[in-house]
Amino acid sequence: MIRNMWWKVLGLLLVLYSIIAGLLIDVPALPVIHQTIRNLFYHVSMWFAMFVMLGTSFIFSIRYLSGFRMKDDLMASGAVYTGIFFGLMGLMTGMVWAKFTWGDFWTNDPQLNGAAVSMMAYLAYTVLRGSIDEVAMRARISAVYNIFAFMLLVIFLGVLPRLADSSLHPGKGGNTSTMEGLDMTMRMVFYPAALGWVLIAFWLLQLHTRRRALIQGIH
C-alpha cells in the first residue's frame, strides 16, 4: 500500500506546499505583472504536466509499434487524454492571466500559438481514434499519428520561438526579464509545484488506464 502510494502523496504534498508557499512568500516587484507573477507556480505547472503526459504518450506509442501490446496503446491514449486536460487548464489560466496583464485574452505569441497547435493536434488524435472501429488498427494508426505529430510539435515549440522576434514569455526572443527575476525563493516554490503536478498527472493517468482496463476486463 505505502510502497505504491508514496508518489501520489508526494505529489499532493508538493502541490499543497506550492499553494501555501506560493501565496505567502515575498515576490520580486515586477512591472506590468506585479503580484500575478505568483501565477507562475500554478499556470506554468499545467504546461509542465501536459508536456510530460504528451511525452509519455509518445514513448508508449513507440513501444506499441515495437511490440503491438494493447496495454501500451491504452497508456498512450490515456496519456493524451490526461495531457489534453492539463493543456486546456493551462490555456484557460493563461488566457485569464494574459487578459489582466497584457490586456488581451489572446496575443500573437509563439508560446501561445504552440500551445494552441498542440491542443489541435491532440484533439485531432482523439477524433482519429474515434473514427476507426477495429481495435488493433485504431491502436496502430493512432500510434503513427501520435509519433508524427509529436515530433513536429517538438520542432514547432523548440525551433520556432527561437526564430521569433519577440515574445512576451520569458527566455524567448527579446524578453528575458522574468527568468532573471525568478529568484531563489521563487525557484524553491516553482520546481516543487511543477514536479507535484507532474506526479498528479501520472496519478490521473493511472486511474484512467485502470478504469479502462477494468471495463475491458468485465467484457
Binding site: M5, K8, L12, V15, L16, I19, I200, W203, L204, L207
Partner: peptide, 16 residues
C-alpha cells in the same frame, strides 16, 4: 485553498 485542495486529493485517494 489548502482545504479545497486537500479535499480533492482525498477524493482522488478514495477513487484509487
Amino acid at each position: 485553498m489548502s482545504i479545497i485542495f486537500t479535499g480533492l486529493g482525498t477524493y482522488l485517494f478514495l477513487i484509487d
